[in-house]
Design a protein around this nucleic acid. Structure first.
Lengths: 333, 333
DNA sequence: GCCAATTGAGCAATCGTTTGTAACGTGATA
DNA sequence: TATCACGTTACAAACGATTGCTCAATTGGC
C-alpha cells in the first residue's frame, strides 16, 4: 500500500525518477555527489525495488519454475536444493510447485507458471499436458525434463540417468549375485521412468537366457501403499521370486513393510534392490541396496541448462545430459 | 517474446483492448455476441494473461511466500503441502523458499519475496532478520510465524503448538513410565522452539522434585550430525541417563545411530522420546515414541490466517493459534 | 574568448493489464 | 422528429520501473 517507490525518492531529492533509477542500477551516467545523495536517501527510506514493475518493463521475470510430483520425497527435495543453489547464484528465483502426482494439479501449476511469465521450467512430469507445454515453447521459455519424459514430447532437453541401462545393470548385478528368480515392482507404464526401468529389467533377464515370469512383474504408482500391495500379492503366490527389484524408494518402503508383516527376512527369504531407496537416516535395516540417482546434481544441471539457454541467443541442439547413478550396496541382497 | 496479448486479440477482432479484457473478466458489460467472439478468439490464439502486468495494475501479486529451514525435512514438507492446499483453493500462488538453516539465506529469501510483492508470508525462521521483517509490516503484508518465533518480535500472528507445555507433558509421560534419570538434546538456545522445549523439560523435572543434571542436557542444531554427536557425548559419560528426550526428528535419527553403533538397545539400555520423529516409512525399529506436530494443519491454518488478514480491512487482534500435538507411542520407551 | 567535446540530468515512451468515464448507437416514447 | 434511456464499446489514465534521446551545463583546448 504505502511502499516507497522511485518517485518518492526522486521528489524528496528534487531529481528525476530516471536519475534515481540510474544511480541504483549503475546503468547510465550519474554525477558522484547525486549518486551519493540517492544512495543515502534509498538507505534511509528503506526503498525496495518492485520486481513486478521491473519484470514487466524488462519483459523478463527472472524466475524459473520447477514442478515435482511430491515435495516430501527426499529425491525430489534434493533435486530442488540443487536447482535452488544454481538459481541463487545467478539471481534467479526458483518457484517450487508440487503436483501431488496428479495431472490436473500439474496442469494448474504449469498454467500458473506460464501466467507468471516463468523464464524457464524444470519439469518432473506425471504426464499428459502436451498442449500447455506447447505454449512454453511459444513464450520461448526453455524446458528441461527430469525423470519422466511425457508422451508426445519427442525432442527436448533432458537431464536424467539412462533408466533403461540402469535397470539392466542393476538386474545384472543381481543375477551376478546368483539370484535367478527375480521379479519387479515397476512404476506406471505410461511414464517413461516406469516403462524404461521395466524394459531394462526384462532385457537383462532375456540376455541371461531366463524366461520372463509375467506374474512376478507388478505395476505400482510410485507410492508407498502400492509398493506394499504389490509385495503382498507377490508373497501370496504359490511360487514366488527369490528377489525383487523395485522402481523407486517409496514403493520399497511399502514392500519392506509387507515383508516384515509376513514375518519374512531380507535377504534370506527375499532379496531386494531398488531405485533411489536412499535412506538418509541410515536406520532402516538391512540397508537397502539401491541404484541412486545423483538428485542434487540433476537439479543443478537442469538449472544450468535453463540458464545457458536463456543466455545464448542461438538455438543449439537439444541437450540430453545423462548422469550416472551410484550403486549403493546394502545388506538387502 | 512473441506471447499473445490482449492487444493482438483486440486488433484481430476490431474491438478495443478494454472490451477483450472485460469479456474475459466479466467485470464490465459486454454484449453477448462480442463476448462469444472474444472467447473464441482467445481460445484459438492460446492467449495467456500476463500475471506480471495484472499484478502491477492491481497492485496485488496474489502470491504468498513461505520460508522453511529445510525442505527435505518431512515436517516442513507437510507444512508446505498444507499451505499449498489452501492457496490453491483461493487462487493464490505459494512461493516456496528454503533457507538451509542459514540466516543469510533466510534474509535473501525474505528480500526476494519482498521485491516480488508477496501478499503475505509464512515464516519458519532461524532467527535474526528483524529489520527486514519491519518492511513487510510497511508493505502491510501479513506475516504468520510457525515453529520458531524470532527474538525481537513481540506481537505477531503465530500458529504452533505450545512448545513449553508439550515438552512438559512429554517429560511427565516419561516420568510416569518410571524413568527418573532423564536427559535431553535440545535445539539452539536462541530459537524459541529450542529454548521452550528445554524449559518445559526442566519444569517437569523440577515439578517432580528431581534435580537437574546439566551434563545430561546438550544443545544441538536440529540436524542429524549434531544429534549423533550429542548422543555420543552422553554415552561416554560415566553416569549416564536412562532416557533421553530429543527436540526434533533429525537429531533423533542421529542419536539412534550413535546408540546402535555403541551396541546398545532401545529402550532397554536407553529409552527415547522425541518431537516430530514421525517416520513415514514405519521401518525404523523400534518405532519412536514422539510428540508429533500436526504439520499439515499448521500449514493450512497459517495460510488461512494470511488470507483472512488480506480479506479483512480492519486490523484485528494478533492471532495465536495453538494446535495440539499428537502423542504417538512407539516401542522406544 | 570561442567552439567542441564531454558529462549530468530530465522527458517521455514503454511493458500488458484493468477500469472510470465518456461517447456512441439503437430503440422507444412523447 | 426530438429526446431520453439504456446497453455497448472506446478512450485514456493509471500501476512502477527502465532507457533512448535530448538538451543544458561544464570543461578543456586552441
Amino acid at each position: 500500500m504505502s511502499a516507497v517507490k522511485l518517485e518518492d525518492i526522486a521528489r524528496q531529492l528534487g531529481v528525476s525518477i530516471s536519475t534515481v533509477s540510474r544511480a541504483l542500477s549503475g546503468n547510465g551516467r550519474v554525477g558522484e555527489k547525486t549518486r551519493q545523495r540517492v544512495l543515502a536517501a534509498v538507505q534511509e527510506s528503506k526503498y525496495t525495488v518492485n520486481a513486478v514493475a521491473r519484470s514487466l518493463r524488462l519483459r523478463d521475470a527472472r524466475n524459473i519454475g520447477i514442478i515435482v510430483p511430491d515435495i516430501s520425497n527426499s529425491y525430489f527435495a534434493a533435486v530442488i536444493k540443487g536447482a535452488q543453489e544454481v538459481c541463487r547464484q545467478s539471481g534467479y528465483a526458483l518457484m517450487v510447485c508440487n503436483s501431488d502426482e496428479d495431472r490436473s494439479f500439474e496442469e494448474e501449476a504449469l498454467r500458473t507458471l506460464l501466467e507468471k511469465q516463468a523464464s524457464g521450467l524444470i519439469l518432473a512430469s506425471v504426464g499428459g499436458c502436451a498442449e500447455l507445454l506447447g505454449q512454453y515453447a511459444y513464450h520461448d521459455a526453455p524446458i528441461v525434463f527430469i525423470d519422466n519424459i511425457p508422451q508426445g514430447v519427442n525432442a527436448a532437453d533432458v537431464v536424467s540417468i539412462d533408466n533403461l541401462a540402469a535397470a539392466r545393470e542393476l538386474t545384472r548385478a543381481m543375477l551376478a549375485r546368483g539370484y535367478r528368480e527375480i521379479g519387479m515392482i515397476t512404476g506406471p507404464g505410461d511414464q517413461s521412468t516406469g516403462s524404461l526401468r521395466r524394459a531394462g529389467f526384462e532385457q537383462a533377464l532375456v540376455d541371461a537366457g531366463l524366461a520372463l515370469r509375467p506374474e512376478w512383474v507388478l505395476e505400482g504408482d510410485f507410492r508407498m501403499a502400492s509398493g506394499r500391495a504389490c509385495m503382498e500379492s507377490i508373497l501370496r503366490l504359490e511360487e514366488r521370486p527369490r528377489a525383487m527389484i523395485i522402481a523407486n524408494n517409496y514403493m520399497t518402503y511399502g514392500a519392506i513393510n509387507a515383508i516384515r508383516v509376513a514375518g519374512l527376512r531380507i535377504p534370506e527369504d527375499i532379496a531386494l534392490a531398488a531405485f533411489d531407496a536412499l535412506d538418509e537416516t541410515g536406520l532402516i535395516t538391512p540397508l537397502i541396496t539401491s541404484l541412486n540417482q545423483p538428485a542434487q546434481r540433476i537439479g543443478r544441471r537442469a538449472a544450468e541448462i535453463i540458464l545457458s539457454r536463456l543466455a545464448g541467443e542461438e538455438r543449439r541442439e537439444d541437450e540430453e545430459v545423462v548422469l550416472k547413478p551410484v550403486l549403493f550396496e546394502g545388506g538387502s541382497w
